[in-house]
Structure formats: C-alpha cells, structure tokens
Design a protein around this nucleic acid. Sequence first.
RNA 1: GUGGCCAUAGUGAAAUGGUUAUCACGCAAGUUUGUGGUACUUGCAGUACGGGUUCAAUUCCCGUUGGCCACCCCA
Length: 468
Amino acid sequence: MAIKKKVVVKKVVARPAPKKEFSKKPIVAAKKDTAPAVAGKKQIQLLRGMKDILPRDQYYWKTVFEAAQRMSEDFGFNRIETPLLEEASVFMRGVGKQTDVVEKEMYVFEDRDMEKVALRPENTAAVVRAYLQHGMWNQPQPVKLWYFGPFFRHERPQDGRQRQFHQFGLEVIGDASPVIDAMVIQMTYLLYTELGIPVSVQINSIGMPEDRTRYKMELVQYYRSHRATICETCKARLMKNPMRVLDCKEDSCQPIKANAPQIVDYLSNESRDHFMKVLEYLDELGIPYFLNHTLVRGLDYYTKTVFEVVTSDEEQGSQTALCGGGRYDLLVEELGGKPTSACGVAPGIERLISQMKKRQVPLPARRTPQVYVAQLGDLSRRKAMVLFARLRAEGVMADQDFSKGSLKAQLESANANKIPYAFVIGQKEVQEGTVIMRDMDSGVQETVDFNKAPQILKRKLGLDKSVE
RNA sequence: GUGGCCAUAGUGAAAUGGUUAUCACGCAAGUUUGUGGUACUUGCAGUACGGGUUCAAUUCCCGUUGGCCACCCCA
C-alpha cells in the first residue's frame, strides 16, 4: 500500500509538465448545457428539516467552535465524541420513555440486524453511557467532558428548529457540589457574552423525586380547588403530568398559575441548601439570573438545578431558549452505574449563530491572502506555481487562479479579494529570472529578483524582523 | 403531531389567463493581442413537482415536496 503510493508520487513528480496548455478555453466553451435541464424531473433536495452549512456560514461555525473549545479547555474539560447512532434503549432509559423527545421526536429504526437503534436526540445519556462503559469512575472525579456535534429530532421545522441541529455540550460527572452547577452556568454565560449575545439565565430547582412527589400533591390539590376556571389541557395535565400546568399560556389560567404553590417551598433541606448555594455562587460571580418557578424541563433525568439561557430579544418568537441544562444526580444509576451526581448543559449552535447574525456581531479577523500570484501563459505559470509554494513555505498566505489565462481576470480577482500585493510573472520575467511586484493600492510596481521575491515581500509586509 | 401563510434565474425583487416572463446583484467572455477597482457590450441562469379547469396557465383549483409562523415541545 505504502509502496504503491510512493511510486505514484514519484511518477507525478518525475513526469514532465504537460505539453498541452490546459485552460486556454473558457469553461463555458466546454458544453452548453451543464445545468440539469431535464424537464419533468423533480429536483433532488434536502430532506425536511435538514440544512447545508454553506461556505459563507463556515466562519461563524469556526468562530463558535473555537470559542466553545477554548472555554472548555480553559476550565479543564476534555473532549468526547460519541457515535451518532446508539442502541435506542440508551435514550429511552436515560432521557425517559414518556418524554416528548423520545416518544414523539426520536429517530428510531431497526437496522439490518433488526437491532433497535436511534439517532441521538441529545447527548447526556450517551455521554453517561460512555462514562460507564469506559470505567471513567476510576478516574479522578469529577470527570469533565465537552462535545460538539449533530443531533436529530423529528419535529416540524421552523427557524432555529431543525431535524438535524448541533449542540455544544458540557457534562461534569461525579460531583454533587453546587459549585459545579455554578461553574457550568458560568461557562455558558461567558460563552454567550464573549460571542456578543446578551442573555439572561432562567433558573429553578425541581428538587429530588421525593420533593416533587410532595409538591405535585399540593399542586394538584390547589388546581382541583380551581377546577371550574382552568382550561381543558390543564385538566388533562393534572392527571398525566401535573407540573406541566405551569407551562400553560391560557389567559384564564394565568391568575391561578400566579398563586400556585411553588416548588422551592417543597424542597428538602438538602435540595434547598444546594439551590441556595448555587445562587450564592452566581451572585458572587456577578452572573445575572432570574428565578423562574415555572421552569420545568422536558427530560426525566433532571434533579435539583435546572436552567435555561434565553435571549433578551422579544422578536425571536418561541425559539428563545438558546440552551438548557441542569443537574442529573440519578441518571448514572439509571443507566447501570453506582449512584453518581452529575450536571451538564447544551447550547444550541444554530440558535447561537442566528443570534450572532441578528445582532451583527463582528467576527474575529480572518486570515486573508497577502499576495496574489498572477501569471501569463504556461511557461510563466510553472514559475508562478513554484513561487506560490515558496511563499507558502515562508508563511506568506498567497492567492492565485492558475487556471485563468488573462492578466486582467487575475488582477480583477486579486482586487475583488482585497489583496494588497500581486506578483506578476510573464515570458519576459521568466527569461530575466525576475518577477513584478505590484502594490495593489497605489498601483506602483517594481521588478525584483525571482529568488528574492518572498523575502522582499515579507519586508514590505513587515513580516521579516531579521532585516532592518 | 395539529393549525395557518407561502413557493418566479445562485440571491433579491417585478409581471401576466394569450406571441421570445422583466429588472438588479452575481457569474463568464470581451471593449488594442501583458495590468484591477469606474463605464460599456455580449452571454449564463427561472415560474418546485404532479394532476385538474380552460381553446390557452407561471397566473385559477387539488395533491406532493419544501420553507416560514403559531401550538406542542425544546436547542
């Protein structure tokens, strides 16, 4: 294999340059109908809810990814990437069988071995699966992990809601301290802030299952006493999932909701202390938060702290939740491990980028070419290719369109890309062993030695510190 | 999953029940054969798909697909 490759490489290197000139003709001349003009054929297109991430958006993605990566590394997190496909039971057990995410939205199917598999709808359960499978409880605790990747939920798509979407995530497994909750919230808050998006943290504690049981009884009793005024859906929720009445947006239910018992009053001392500690840490860090006693998250595994990060933006419709997270002290056990406390968060990347665009957040300066290498004809093209390679070796970013023939087209391209300098090589320069260096701004140009060209340019660009 | 709005070149728009569907941006070639930014010329590219009504549909109707919005839920 390796030998074969080597031979091929050698061949290429040793082969004389092609005799034929390969791009004399414009591309259009090749064939007239390049476009699929087949009538009556429906165009192939994206699956519903899927999106291409086009070159024009890649810089946003890069910026966000790098911000997330840096944040994670700064706080001592290690990256983990789990497969997109898991045994369906990972999520059914982890996230909860009756949750909307699993019940209504998860992509589940049987593979060729008739195994029931699922495209991951979220990552906490899968990361815990990895934690258990690789014996990470033997590592120093807590284990701090981060990830960045695609997730899948079969929903009716909208702006900021796709069937394949991306999340950055943090998971801290193996520590019950409220400091962890605060740290995760802090990191999330910093991420948004540093990317130029003003956000607020909505926070609540839903306690442990015992706390909730007590609370639900009270809540149901309270709502029963107002049975006459509440809406039909609330009546149904009361039977099935009482805490969801707190999400009700029906006008008639609002006054009742406002006076409803609040979960924080039903927390055990332990849960309450934990929550108070989290809030104290947030106060200390100066992170603005809002207590939201109606915040109940849709996944079964949450305990104690739950939070969401929302925009202060009114016009964003219902997709204001940029990110959600919380503590999950029972999940590891649920998936077969020893009792292990944990806490995590998952910011949605599409919603984050959409906010950056909406707010016209300036992106960090990007790497742009410093010089354009233009050539005329095949002979000079060969020299130009050499020059380009030398520039690159010298750490100078160059641009080129070696397939183009006319100098005009090449300078146009250099200009369009706002490249400050251009090297021009033609027949004459090849014979003289020189190259023309053109200042694209002033139009001033000078002829310089071909071999010295990279150094001379570097001096012009102020990159060469050795020469004064 | 429920309901509503929508669908014209790559992008943004315009138009009409009836000859070659308009404009801008874009892209390509050119305006003295080796010099960009402005200008000019020419070219490229479109009525999402399928069916129906009609002498005639891009236009009206239905379905499909996709987008958007609200709900549900969430990222």
